[in-house]
Design a protein around this nucleic acid. Structure first.
Lengths: 151, 151
DNA sequence: TATTGTTATACTCTATAACTATA
DNA sequence: TATAGTTATAGAGTATAACAATA
């Protein structure tokens, strides 16, 4: 009853009591659901995340993004190239070698669609989490992330 | 104060209020911490997970594992081969084309070390989650995973 | 034919090293 | 020299299609 294995009742799942295990499995399922929502828009989760950040920080640089999203600058390159190729992102020379990024008009449009998809996704998540626990869950995840980074 | 961005205070993080985003980021950090714990044992998270399951289900088959862990059978092949190569896993012919898997004596030893690593990992997670909330968090993750799979 | 296992392949995410360009 | 960006590469997780073997 406490074990989420349905078939083959003779099998035991020693992973089932582990938070880390369910964290991984749940993240995979939840992220796949978001990817499905984004699929009609022609972008994946990473690109959409970048687009959302960009929409809120027009004119920021690639290294700003890397620091804020804790992504390796090298890993942003293909995402930025994809968005530029779609014509939703505009590059302008900044200080030094920096390049400032902003959204085009098409980019603003896509940003609106992506925001809507993320909102639908979050409200679906909200259906599994009592509203009064939402902030507590967020705080717990942030804490867990901080602690895991400095073990 | 509610935003976890430390530097560049002029930047806004529209992802910060999203559960899905923190689920992803936290899982990456937590899983990397587990990988660090397992590194001295010479196996990665996937192989360790398989070993734990195997230790609790000696004589199960590869398709049992796939169903229980919701892994694609094709993705289990390299993990099983790695464990067999390490000499910790024994294959015996089963019914039909099935192969039953069990741990060798070395496998039992490695299993004990892996269990210990997972316990240390879980107790580190426990330091970020109040003990009285642990079961609630587990229930929430399981629920979220179930709901995400049937949107 | 249905089940089990395997191979090949592809996409995504993450990480590091080595390189280039600019102040 | 320090910062910003890029390229190449590697490892891990996930997924599907196609195939082989066995009851």
């Amino acid at each position: 009853m406490s074990n989420s294995l349905s078939p083959s009742p003779e099998l035991v799942d020693p992973l089932d009591p582990l938070i880390g295990y369910h964290l991984r499995r749940t993240t995979v399922a939840v992220t796949a659901a978001l990817a499905d929502l984004l699929h009609p828009l022609g972008i994946n989760v990473g690109e959409a995340t970048l687009l959302l950040f960009l929409g809120a920080n027009q004119g920021c640089t690639q290294s700003d993004i890397g620091r804020a999203l804790r992504a390796q600058p090298a890993n942003l390159v293909p995402l930025i190239n994809k968005l530029a190729l779609l014509g939703v992102l505009d590059k302008q020379p900044g200080k030094g070698r920096a390049i400032t990024l902003s959204l085009t008009t098409d980019g603003e449009r896509l940003h609106a669609s992506v925001s809507e998809a993320f909102e639908r996704h979050e409200s679906r998540i909200g259906r599994s989490i009592p509203a009064e626990r939402r902030d507590e869950v967020l705080a717990l995840l942030r804490q867990l992330c901080r602690d895991a980074c400095h073990p």
